[in-house]
Write a protein that binds this DNA or RNA. Structure first.
Lengths: 209, 209
DNA sequence: CCAAAAGTGTTCTGACTACACCCATGC
DNA sequence: GCATGGGTGTAGTCAGAACACTTTTGG
C-alpha cells in the first residue's frame, strides 16, 4: 500500500473520438470493471520510469508526450493510498494493444465512459481538462498525429478534444501563421476531391506557442 | 520511507521581496542546512490535510491559497522516496512564525537562497515558475495581500514575483477594468502625499480571469 | 455534372504596449 | 515651495472571431 502510478492514455480513435485506454479487471477488487492502466513501482524504479513502462506495455509506444498530472490519495479504496497519475498522448495508428483476453485493454470514448473502478472517472476528467488547456498554449497534439498530416486532420483532432467545431481559415492562420506546423511540399489524394497539402510540426517536442 | 509532503510557502516580506519559508535542520541528515517544511503523513491523514497542517504549524494561517504542485521521487536522498509538494501564498502581516531556536523557521528571499537540503532548490524553482504563470491568468495574489490595499501595493506584489517593473496605468486598467478588484470607497493617508484609494478583490478565492 | 473536401481574405473588436503630465499632501 | 507618490488618456499594434465563395477531383 505505498505509491502507485496510473496513466491516462489518450488517443483519437478512427471514428474521430477522443478516447482513453481502459483495462478490464480480471481479479478482485472491482473484478469485471474497467480501470486505468497502473500499478506499483518496481524495485528501484522511478515514477516517470513506471509511467513509461506502463505506457509501453499497453500500447507498444514510448516516444510520446507524457506528463505528470496530479497525485491523488485514497482513490476509491484502490490499490495504493497515494496514486501518482500521468497523462499521455498517442497516435492511434502506432499503437498495438495487448490481445489478451484477461486484463483486456480497450479504447473508450471519453464522452460516454463505462462505469470505472477506483474513482478513475475523476482522474480522466482532470486529465481531459488539462489536455484542453494545453491545446491552447502548446503544440502537444504532435503526439496524436502521424509525422505528416493534412490540416483538416489536425483540425479534427482539436475539435475532438475541445468538443466544438472551429473555423477552417482561422485554424489555418493560427497553426501555419504562427509557425506551429509547416508545409512539406507533398500532397495526398483522397477520394473524390482536390489533393490536400501535407504538413508537419516545426518542432516535435513539447513547446509553448 | 513512504510518501511525504513538503510545502513551499511564499510571501512578500516587508522589504518587498518574494520570499519562501525555510527551516533550519536541527538533526541529521543535513543538519544545519535549510530545508522546506515537510514531513510524513500522520496516521489516516490525507495529502491535503498534511499540507494544511504543515502550513498552519509554521505560519499560523490556514485559509490561504494552497495548491498541489508536483510529485518528486528520490529528492536528494531525503526523507521519503515520494515527495508530494504543495505551494501556498500568505500575507506576511498575518503570519506568526514559531520562535523556536531548534528547527527555526525563517523567510528567505527567493533570489539568493542559501544552500538547501534535499534538492529543495528544484522544488522552489518549480513553484516559482508555476506562481509566475498563475499570476497571468488567475487572481491568486489575493492571498498575498490584506483585505484592503492600494493599487500600488498590489502592483509591487506583481513586480516582486515577476521581477520586472510594470506600467501603472496599464496595471490599473487590467485589474480594475477587468473586475479583478474594485474600489472600497475608503482611502488611506500615508506620509507626505495624496491619499490613496483602497481596493479589495471582487472574489477572494481562486478564479481564472 | 454533381458531390465532397480543400483552399482562400476581409472586417471588427478587444487586449496589450508605450508613453508624460498634473494633483494632493506633509513638512 | 518642494519632494513624494497618486492618479489619469491616447494612439498603435496584434491576435482572435465571424463570415462565403471558388477550385479540384472522382465517379
Amino acid at each position: 500500500m505505498a505509491a502507485a502510478v496510473v496513466v491516462v492514455i489518450f488517443t483519437i480513435t478512427p471514428d474521430g473520438q477522443l478516447s482513453v485506454l481502459l483495462i478490464e479487471r480480471a481479479a478482485a477488487p472491482e473484478q469485471g470493471r474497467w480501470a486505468l492502466p497502473g500499478g506499483a513501482l518496481l524495485d528501484g524504479e522511478s515514477l516517470d520510469g513506471a509511467a513509461v513502462r506502463k505506457l509501453r506495455d499497453e500500447t507498444g509506444v514510448a516516444d510520446v508526450y507524457l506528463e505528470q498530472l496530479f497525485t491523488f490519495d485514497r482513490l476509491g479504496g484502490g490499490l495504493a493510498d497515494v496514486v501518482v497519475t500521468y497523462f499521455a498522448l498517442v497516435d492511434h495508428a502506432r499503437t498495438r494493444l495487448r490481445p489478451d483476453l484477461e486484463w483486456r485493454p480497450q479504447w473508450h470514448a471519453v464522452r460516454g465512459l463505462p462505469p470505472v473502478a477506483f474513482e478513475n472517472e475523476r482522474v480522466v476528467e482532470y486529465a481531459e481538462r488539462r489536455l484542453r488547456n494545453k491545446l491552447e498554449y502548446t503544440n502537444v497534439v504532435y503526439s496524436l498525429l502521424p509525422s505528416r498530416f493534412t490540416l483538416t486532420e489536425m483540425q479534427r483532432v482539436y475539435e475532438a478534444i475541445l468538443g466544438e467545431e472551429m473555423d477552417k481559415r482561422n485554424f489555418r492562420r493560427r497553426v501555419v501563421g504562427l509557425g506551429i506546423v509547416r508545409e512539406t511540399g507533398a500532397t495526398r489524394k483522397q477520394g473524390a476531391h482536390r489533393p490536400a497539402m501535407l504538413y508537419e510540426f516545426s518542432v516535435r517536442e513539447p513547446m509553448s506557442v
